[in-house]
Design a protein around this nucleic acid. Structure first.
Lengths: 158, 158
DNA sequence: TATAAATTTTATAAATTTATCTGATACTCT
DNA sequence: AGAGTATCAGATAAATTTATAAAATTTATA
């Protein structure tokens, strides 16, 4: 799993949000139900996006969250970095000390190129582009159930 | 961090082991001291490699671990998969449900290619090739100290 | 202005990963 | 055979990530 679960949920929530185009603010509760995860957990995650000005929020009745900018202007990289930080694109792939220096490991150059390409992939893709497949977004809700069940049974068996 | 800490330690330990070329068996205790990590923890990790026939072990005095095959025949991928499993090269990068099906997300193809290239990178590189830079291997010992300090202070400050 | 709806903040719990410890077993050597 | 050395296996502990709950704050509107 290249991204943290939080980053995955953030992306899934924002994708859901693109399906609510007309509404001014959408409550986190609603999104949480649609994604089938805890309202509180989602709040926590989305707050990070509010602080990074990817979302704006409004309290009280008729409140909720909304995009700060339009989804066309939000790249996947924006979201990923807001949640997981830019550190996931840093460091030696083997965890070797001082590998970034003038005497790197033999995988270094190759890894750097691949990592940059991953980063480029995320920055090339806007939320709006990903949102062009609403069917996929709707399907993605069930995944959480499966994940939770999988980790539970894994615990029991092994 | 693309690889788990265990996988990183496994690689570092095997790299260390290549520096002990002449000896028949090297004790895990010795390796653990060189890497500056817990002897017991390293045991646990290396046991996985024993079970996967990457290492062989021998109990008692003059015992320890040794390569089952020569480092030339061991790829980085062998080690990574032995510890982290092949799952790290599977699934949708965004965690979307059924993304692998006939209706994938718009990042899917691009991610698949990159992921395959990462896998290829690991399988192209043998332990022996990485071991050709003994200075780097020796330096890598200190990294663990830094990591441990970093996570401790992180805890205290934030 | 009171009430209900919503986010925000803080606390708590569960699960997983990371790390250490202990006892058992196997082996070498004298 | 006995003493010492080393892995092996399973239990335990600490740290981090993942998830939930409860209390505090803000806001719309009746």
């Amino acid at each position: 799993m290249f991204l943290s679960r939080e980053a995955e949920y953030a992306i899934q929530a924002l994708l859901r949000l693109t399906l609510h185009k007309d509404e001014h603010y959408v409550s986190i509760k609603t999104l949480a139900k649609e994604l089938n995860i805890s309202e509180y957990y989602l709040s926590k995650i989305l707050q990070k996006l509010v602080k990074k000005n990817i979302l704006k929020s409004h309290k009280g009745p008729k409140g909720g969250i909304a995009f700060f900018d339009s989804p066309e202007k939000i790249s996947m990289l924006d979201i990923v970095v807001a949640i997981d930080g830019k550190e996931i694109f840093e460091g030696c792939v083997l965890g070797l000390y001082r590998c970034e220096s003038d005497d790197p490991c033999s995988l270094h150059e190759r890894w750097l190129k691949l990592r940059d390409q991953i980063q480029q992939m995320f920055s090339d893709e806007s939320l709006a582009q990903l949102g062009e497949n609403p069917e996929l977004i709707r399907r993605s809700q069930k995944f959480i159930n499966i994940k939770q069940k999988a980790s539970k049974s894994k615990n029991k068996i092994s």
